[in-house]
């Protein structure tokens, strides 16, 4: 590719509109939210104002966020997301592998099936899950035929994790598919030829060589899971609140934007923390025995 410095006009023509877009609709609102997180609602005539704010008053919102109640929800969001991500990986890996080793003429169809749920609105898909899992739902109906149940399957952590896995599975399958597809199959053959079993080949060759796809998939699933609010709201109800629900309520029902902003930034820092961990991991794994 040509160096952009040699073609400044082309560079600016192509680069300026998206930069302005990002500045106007991402950086500036984010900055506004950042300021908001250090602000408080204004007091008017001894009452809390609905729309007025006292800007940059201090870190009271952050102190409030470290209340055990919110820390607990934050921690629960992290482990629910981590579990959902792990389950996604567990299911997506064989799916991606299967698609890669399918006949060429079937691959486009199989990939289409993976992304097909995206054609339907998330809300409708989530309501469909409710129809499947509710007490008079399809699962319980089938269990009833063989004499079990009915079980209460909605409005708990299980329902939330199931919903997250269902919704974010394609984000795990696609990057995995891309790396496995590019993987030179002769590495696997070499491992088998050298006496490795199928399992050893998978653990010592396939997994390390598809690590970039695994990490991309984890990031693509874990981060949206952490911030999700629709799925826990509809499937988890009051029993399985995640941090996304709390933030959403601050901005809407509670009308407490400063606190919502503070929670949002804490969530963002947690995400940065996860990315930093991943970076440290890749640095470390370069030097050591794989």
């Amino acid at each position: 590719m040509e160096n952009w410095k040699q073609n400044p006009r082309v560079f600016w023509t192509l680069g300026l509109p998206p930069s302005l877009w990002l500045l106007a609709f991402f950086i500036i609102p984010l900055g506004f939210l950042f300021i908001m997180s250090f602000s408080d609602k204004a007091m008017v005539d001894g009452e809390v104002s609905i729309t007025g704010y006292d800007y940059l008053t201090g870190i009271t919102n952050y102190i409030r966020a470290f209340d055990p109640l919110y820390l607990g929800i934050m921690w629960k969001s992290v482990w629910i997301s981590a579990l959902a991500t792990a389950l996604c990986l567990l299911f997506a890996y064989p799916i991606a592998f299967g698609i890669c080793f399918a006949k060429d003429k079937w691959k486009p169809l199989l990939l289409l099936l993976v992304v097909l749920p995206f054609w339907i609105n998330l809300l409708i898909r989530t309501y469909a899950l409710i129809a499947v899992f509710r007490t008079q739902g399809y699962v319980n109906k089938i269990l009833g035929w063989v004499g079990f149940g009915p079980f209460e399957m909605l409005y708990n952590n299980f329902a939330v994790i199931f919903g997250l896995v269902y919704v974010y599975m394609p984000f795990m399958v696609l990057p995995l598919y891309a790396t496995i597809e590019r993987l030179d199959k002769s590495y696997l053959e070499a491992s088998l030829d050298l006496g490795g079993s199928q399992f050893q080949t998978f653990m010592r060759v396939t997994v390390p060589l598809t690590m970039p796809g695994i990490i991309s998939g984890i990031i693509l699933v874990f981060i949206p899971c952490l911030g999700s609010f629709l799925t826990p709201d509809l499937l988890g109800g009051a029993n399985a609140l995640m941090i996304g629900n709390v933030i959403e309520r601050q901005f809407k029902a509670a009308n407490d934007w400063p606190f919502g902003a503070a929670l949002s930034f804490l969530l963002m820092y947690a995400t940065f923390g996860a990315l930093a961990l991943r970076y440290l991991f890749t640095l470390r794994s370069k030097g050591v025995d794989v």
Binding site: D184, E189, L192, G196, S197
Partner: peptide
Amino acid sequence: PPNKRPTNMVFQSYAVF
């Protein structure tokens, strides 16, 4: 299967891990 044979192969692409 290949992992049970007393043969080893040098691949055209070498396939060095």
